[in-house]
C-alpha cells in the first residue's frame, strides 16, 4: 500500500529531490512551498503556502486528511539560512529564520500529529544541521533555529510515543544545494575538515537516514538526532 507523505519545502533542492524519490517508489506525496511546483505527477499534490502561516498549514493538513484519511510520514524539510556574524544580523532576519525553520516545523508537526494520533501510527523526520553541534561561527541564527528543532524533536518524541509516532531529526553536512551557494569555498573546506569523514554530503546519504527513520521496523527509534559525516554533539 502506498504511503501518504508530506514533504515541506518541495519546490527545489533536497525537498524536490525527496518528492521525486518517494514518488518513484509509488507513494502519494503532498508538498508545499511559497511558490509553484515543477513536479508533474498524478500522485503529487502541491500547496503554495508559507509554512509559518498557521491558518494555511491547518487548512492544508486538514484537506490532506480528508482526502486520504491518513498521513503516514511527515518530512519537515523547509528551511532557510543566513550566513552572517551576529553583529551583522538584523532582528528581522532572525525572525524570518525562526518563522520558517522552527515555527514551520512546529506547526506541521502539531497538525500532522493530530491525524497520526487517530491512526496510532506515524513517522516524523525533522531537519537539523551540523552547524548546531559544531557551533559554527557566522551561522548563529540558522544554528539556533535548528537547536530549537533538535530540542523540539526530543520532547515531541516523548509526547507522541504513546501513539506509536516516532519523531527524529537528521543533520546533514553541507550538500551542494541553493542553501550554501553563497558560502565561500574556504569556509566550506573549513567546515568539512571538522567532520570525521571529510567530504560533501550527497542526496543518497540523506535519504539513507530518512529511510531508516521512516521504516516500519524503526518503531523503537525515536527522539534521535543523527548527524552525517561523523559529527557529534
Amino acid at each position: 500500500m502506498p504511503e501518504v507523505i508530506i514533504i515541506t519545502g518541495s519546490r527545489k533542492g533536497l525537498g524536490k529531490e525527496l518528492c521525486v524519490y518517494y514518488l518513484e517508489k509509488k507513494n502519494i506525496v503532498i508538498g508545499c512551498s511559497r511558490g509553484p511546483s515543477a513536479i508533474d505527477d498524478p500522485n503529487y499534490t502541491h500547496y503554495e503556502l508559507d509554512v509559518a502561516d498557521e491558518r494555511q498549514v491547518v487548512k492544508m493538513v486538514k484537506e490532506v486528511s480528508r482526502k486520504f484519511s491518513r498521513i503516514d510520514i511527515l518530512i519537515n524539510n523547509a528551511g532557510i539560512a543566513s550566513m552572517n556574524h551576529m553583529l551583522l544580523t538584523p532582528l528581522e532576519t532572525v525572525q524570518n529564520i525562526f518563522n520558517t525553520n522552527y515555527f514551520g516545523t512546529f506547526l506541521f508537526c502539531r497538525e500532522v500529529a493530530k491525524v497520526m494520533v487517530r491512526k496510532k501510527y506515524g513517522r516524523i523526520v525533522n531537519f537539523t544541521t551540523v552547524a548546531t553541534p559544531l557551533r559554527l561561527e557566522g551561522e548563529i541564527a540558522y544554528a539556533n533555529s535548528k537547536a530549537a528543532i533538535e530540542n523540539f524533536t526530543e520532547i515531541a518524541a516523548r509526547e507522541l510515543a504513546e501513539f506509536n509516532i516516532t519523531v527524529n531529526a537528521v543533520g546533514p553536512t553541507p550538500i551542494p544545494t541553493d542553501l550554501i551557494k553563497n558560502v565561500s569555498r574556504e569556509k566550506m573546506d573549513a567546515l568539512i575538515n571538522r567532520q570525521a569523514i571529510r567530504r560533501f554530503g550527497t542526496f543518497e546519504d540523506l535519504v539513507n537516514v530518512i529511510n531508516f527513520f521512516i521504516d516500519k521496523k524503526s518503531d523503537f527509534i525515536t527522539g534521535q538526532i543523527l548527524y552525517l559525516g561523523g559529527v557529534n554533539k
Binding site: 486538514k62 480528508r66 491525524v115
Partner: peptide
C-alpha cells in the same frame, strides 16, 4: 491529558469533515 489530546483531534477532524471548517 493524552485522552484530551485525542478528543480534541477527533472533534477537529469531525468538524473538518462535516462542517468543512478548519479550526484549531
Amino acid at each position: 491529558s493524552l485522552g484530551l489530546v485525542r478528543v480534541i483531534s477527533n472533534v477537529e477532524e469531525k468538524i473538518s469533515e462535516i462542517l468543512k471548517k478548519d479550526i484549531v
